[in-house]
């Protein structure tokens, strides 16, 4: 199979159109199951009471906020190394969803911190570095809009994204490297999770929902970007004329 065939925007546009609704449906189903497990099956917490239930959106969106930047960096490396248009378009399509995920993680964190720690916000390393991530997302979106030539914007944003990726390990390891108000990780690759099983299941299903949601939204957004950037191309007219996609 020739993967290069699908890396052309012309070939990817209809595929994305077919896949997006299925990912959206799967995301909705996962969110329903996750919320059911999180609010009905999972018990209350021994120290935080019911307030801990914010974890079912806070942790999945915080994970996504970091992961999306890494995926953007991956596409950026491909865009620079292979000079492929679709890679840059994927990175461009991911940025707004990454910004939303970061915003949700910060917002839910504030409304979790107030009843547990006693404050909405503190300038500790974890929270500050996550706030920097939000500004980095704004920065890459602004940089894109500041440069008129799309190909030059692709390159500038790719370099910016790769440089900005340095913030991701800082966010992730901040709770180990410095004294922070934020607690350490409950779930990691190196240690057994320090959560009751039903709580963990609820959180992981919600994390899966966040993944599927991100894929669905990004597929639709990459289609809008293709429409914008390939306007007037012969293939696009042909595609739009032959099928209602």
């Amino acid at each position: 199979m020739n993967l290069y065939r699908y890396s052309a925007p012309a070939a990817f546009y209809p595929i994305a159109g077919v896949l997006a609704p299925w990912f959206a449906l799967a995301a909705a189903l996962c969110a329903l199951v996750g919320l059911y497990v999180g609010f009905v099956v999972a018990p209350t917490d021994f120290q935080q009471g019911q307030a801990y239930r914010i974890i079912f959106i806070h942790v999945p969106t915080a994970w996504m906020s970091m992961f999306i930047w890494l995926v953007m960096a991956f596409w950026s490396v491909l865009a620079l190394a292979l000079n492929t248009r679709l890679s840059a378009m994927m990175a461009q399509a991911l940025a707004p969803t990454g910004a939303w995920m970061t915003f949700i993680a910060l917002w839910t964190g504030a409304f979790w911190g107030r009843p547990t720690w006693g404050t909405y916000w503190a300038w500790d390393a974890r929270m500050t570095s996550e706030l920097i991530l939000l500004f980095l997302y704004f920065g890459v979106i602004a940089l894109r809009n500041a440069i008129d030539d799309p190909r030059r914007a692709d390159r500038a944003c790719a370099v910016f994204t790769i440089v900005g990726a340095v913030n991701i390990p800082i966010i992730y390891f901040s709770v180990q490297w410095w004294n922070t108000l934020h607690q350490g990780a409950s779930v990691s690759l190196t240690a057994a999770p320090s959560m009751a099983a039903t709580m963990l299941v609820g959180m992981l299903v919600m994390a899966l929902a966040a993944w599927l949601y991100t894929i669905a939204v990004v597929l639709v957004r990459v289609r809008t970007i293709i429409l914008e950037r390939e306007r007037g191309a012969a293939w696009l007219d042909a595609t739009l004329a032959t099928r209602r996609v």
């Binding site: 021994f46 720690w117 006693g118 350490g184 959560m195 009751a196």
Partner: peptide, 18 residues
């Protein structure tokens, strides 16, 4: 002038904690 609670990363039902 300000006191904040710092909790750990363990989550479990009260019965399990007991």
């Amino acid at each position: 002038t300000e006191v904040l609670a710092k909790h750990d990363e363990n989550y479990m039902p009260p019965e399990a904690a007991a």
